[in-house]
Computed example of a mutant assay.
Amino acid sequence: MAAAHFAAYTFIEPSLREIPNLAHVMIGALLFSFGGAGFLGNILAGVLIHRFTKSIITAGLVALCLALVGLGWFGPQLGTDRVLVLLVIWGAAVAALFAGLQTWILRAAGSTIMTAAAIHSAVINSAIGFGAVLGAQILTVAGVSGVMLAAGMVVIVPLLIVLPQAVPQTVLKKGSLLDG
């Protein structure tokens, strides 16, 4: 998830430059909106994380995936307003994800919390570099929209890993809602 985010985030500004008739000063406003949404996503996650950790992570992954796929698939033709909506969704989702995943990992760590925190930090920092390199490789083949689309598709992998953990076990048992 983090590598996919940073692959797309590395090329967010060139992506915004492709919006037709967008004044260059608006790029800063759009990026500010992304950051503001991240701030709010972080606060919201902080308030709800202790009761809804897995739900926040699952919803964050779905929102991140949809925002990146939307930006990649439709890109600049969406216009400024719709791109702004997707950037706000992306910013809030990724901030909630970083808070949610760190909480989940540290809770699971038990007495090895310091080691888990160090490993988590190393993974995130590695994802920054790996994501940027991955995004650059995709850029040469598929352009900026391709980077966004590929990043969104990559987010499906952690979503498929987390989703079974987020669904209550009673729902998965025989005679449950899934059995019809």
Rank of each mutant, 00 (worst) to 15 (best):
H24E: 15
H5C: 09
L48I: 01
K54E: 08
V88S: 11
G36E: 06
V155K: 01
A23H: 13
V25G: 14
Q137A: 12
M114V: 14
L44W: 11
P168T: 05
R107L: 07
D179E: 15
V47I: 14
S55K: 07
S176D: 09
T80M: 14
T10S: 14
M114G: 13
N125M: 03
P158R: 00
Q102M: 08
Q102E: 06
A23Q: 14
A23R: 12
A151K: 02
G135P: 11
I43T: 07
E13M: 03
A108N: 06
F98C: 01
D81G: 10
A67F: 05
R107T: 03
T103S: 06
N125P: 05
L44G: 12
S33G: 15
G129E: 04
I89L: 15
V47F: 12
I56L: 09
T58V: 03
A150S: 15
T10A: 13
M1G: 11
P158K: 02
A118D: 12
L149N: 10
L86P: 08
A122H: 05
L71N: 12
S121H: 09
N42Y: 04
W73L: 15
G175V: 07
N42I: 00
I138S: 10
N42M: 12
A99R: 00
I156S: 10
I161L: 10
G36A: 14
A132D: 06
D179N: 15
G46F: 00
A116C: 02
A122N: 12
S145G: 15
L64S: 13
T80K: 09
K174I: 13
V155F: 02
L87G: 12
I12C: 10
A96E: 03
A23F: 02
V88A: 15
G100S: 03
F6Y: 14
G36Y: 07
S15D: 12
M26K: 15
I128W: 01
P14D: 06
V94N: 12
C65M: 15
A45K: 00
T58Q: 02
A151N: 10
G91T: 07
V94Y: 15
G79A: 06
T103E: 03
I43S: 05
L178T: 13
V62R: 04
L160Y: 02
P164E: 02
N42C: 05
Q137S: 11
K173M: 14
V162K: 01
L97G: 04
L101E: 04
V62W: 04
K54N: 05
G131L: 05
V62K: 00
I128T: 07
G135S: 13
L84Q: 13
T115N: 11
A4T: 11
T103F: 10
W104H: 08
